[in-house]
Design a protein around this nucleic acid. Structure first.
Lengths: 338, 338
DNA sequence: TTGAAAGCGTTACCAG
DNA sequence: CTGGTAACGCTTTCAA
């Protein structure tokens, strides 16, 4: 079965190719009568526009690229990324864009594919998850011809278009809540200090303590890498060296590890240790005890990212788009306030 | 900065466009001397082939579509899908294909995009995750012009190309192991009976019992939907109505729920209840107790899927490709045999 | 309101 | 081994 082309329809309807094109694309300046007749032929022949040909002629690919650099090694371990991906995919479909997914596992793959991505006319725009200080992938993308948006505040390219959640105020609210419910010594399991999420959440923690005149001790802060296991180790360290009565974890996944560590120490949450996470991923709701956490609108984040990127594609890059989404404190059992 | 084209390079090198094309695509019949010279100009001008134009001329898009129909509502809740996606994405990149991701949340979206996908010349092939008996999306795709491969055994299209793990023998081995370690009454938390994974794992359970002359009782089988919560409810039901001393769960995620239920009943794993899961997802290793489970090679599954699809794309569809990957019993603490 | 024709940047065939 | 040239299927001016 051969592909039906614009020409076939034109011939069938006895009009020119241009006219059919106008009908397909809902352009004005076509008489109702002709439009109807052409539409009939389209239906009759089962015509579908050839998207590649359209791209070539119109110089728009209708594709958006989503890039995870090789610094993301926990794509499937942390539910955050799938959820983000889902939101972005959904929004792309809604906006008649196709989503191309690039998960770079190695630097070689990056080297090979970035040029193709940024100069190959493959995509109209790129969303890249690269907030790390050493994510030089951003510079490579920046040198290309394709507009891009960073998911998260990019530490090494402050002037780039980006979208992020308000990590500082989120963390601040988490810690402020722990103080409010009477906890005296609050430890923190931070994220990696070479990522903006890690840094900003730590900043919020410090801000809250400072504001209430709590001492800020280095020993109270242990760095994790957003994995469950690192949360477990960090919490162990905290429990062994410090008499904390609360822990703020920079992610739910690490909080799960912390919970495990607390139990291993024969302590209980929230009686002995109040625990607050960050993200509000699905497992946190069903955990025992259920986890108090900072909800970030991951799915909305994805949708908004696509909106902003499309705006950049359509309307040109400057001024820089920098969007911050709010968070929300979700109180459950683990903080001991209910 | 204008895009550098084949013509630009040709002019610069003083040869024809055709020759440059041959160099770019590593074709034979180009003298070493000319090849070298052209290559220099390519590097000098920073030429990158325009992939869309190439697609149009060569009638190959270099794109593979990965489709999750709207029946998949737990894309980000169950780590299985992200992991699969990652494997597929990786394999695509390795093979110089681009992966287009389609997550259909609604039937309307399916209606709108399937034609584009199967007749729009958007992709060279499709991998679709749709094994359910009522996944009519398969028929729509089948009616298109694009070769496709089903991830999992498609219940309603047995003659389709598909790739799956050996669910029957995997489940069989899980239950046989429980029998081997001396359990007498083995309950099962099954998957949905309108999916092949649900059905086949149930079949393996029955097979193992029958072979050892264990009675097969309906009351011992409770259906879940692969979510943690359904595992929790199913286990509760099992523990309330039956004196089981072992539970085989058709997925790790449901096993996590079962573990929670067992603890709620003040019973312990593995002393009172031996527990075996299916999948071997990362959290199962760090669970307390760690989970005995059937490991399926999810990542390899994705890689193999791409291999097979590319084979179909290159070499035509018949004969049907039906690939079954093996599984492996991973013995940890929860079955009580160590 | 419609049609003719010139691209878009490649590939692939046919001559030489 | 190399060059000329016709596709590929569509969009987009420009004229009519």
């Amino acid at each position: 079965m051969k592909h039906v082309t614009l020409d076939d329809v034109a011939k069938e309807a006895g009009v020119s190719r241009a006219t059919v094109s106008r009908v397909v694309n809902d352009y004005p300046h076509v008489s109702d009568h002709v439009r109807q007749q052409v539409q009939n032929c389209i239906d009759k022949l089962g015509y579908n526009p050839h998207l590649i040909a359209r791209s070539l002629a119109s110089k728009k690919t209708g594709n958006i690229g989503l890039v995870f650099p090789n610094s993301i090694h926990n794509f499937f371990t942390d539910p955050y990324y799938p959820r983000l991906t889902e939101g972005i995919a959904h929004a792309c479909n809604e906006n008649d864009y196709t989503l191309s997914l690039f998960i770079f596992h190695t630097e070689e793959l990056e080297k090979k594919l970035i040029p193709r991505l940024t100069r190959g006319g493959l995509v109209d725009g790129i969303i890249v998850q690269a907030t790390g200080i050493d994510d030089n992938i951003l510079f490579k993308i920046k040198n290309g011809e394709v507009p891009f948006l960073v998911a998260g505040r990019p530490l090494n390219l402050p002037e780039a278009n980006y979208i992020d959640v308000d990590n500082v105020s989120g963390a601040y609210n988490a810690v402020a809540h722990l103080i409010r419910v009477g906890r005296k010594k609050i430890g923190m399991i931070s994220g990696p200090r070479n990522t903006s999420a890690g840094l900003d959440r730590l900043k919020g923690y410090r801000q809250a303590l400072r504001e209430r005149n709590y001492p800020i001790e280095d020993g109270l802060i242990v760095e994790g890498d957003f994995t469950e296991l690192s949360g477990y180790h960090a919490a162990n360290q905290l429990l062994k060296n410090q008499e904390v009565d609360a822990i703020f974890s920079a992610s739910d996944t690490m909080a799960a590890g912390a919970l495990r560590a607390v139990k291993d120490h024969s302590l209980s949450v929230p009686e002995d240790i109040a625990l607050v996470g960050f993200d509000d991923l699905p497992p946190s709701r069903t955990a025992v005890p259920s986890l108090t956490t900072i909800r970030q609108p991951i799915r909305r984040f994805g949708v908004k990212a696509v909106d902003v990127l499309i705006d950049i594609i359509d309307n040109g890059s400057p001024p820089p788009r920098q969007v911050i989404l709010g968070t929300e404190l979700v109180i459950r059992e683990s903080c001991g306030s209910i």
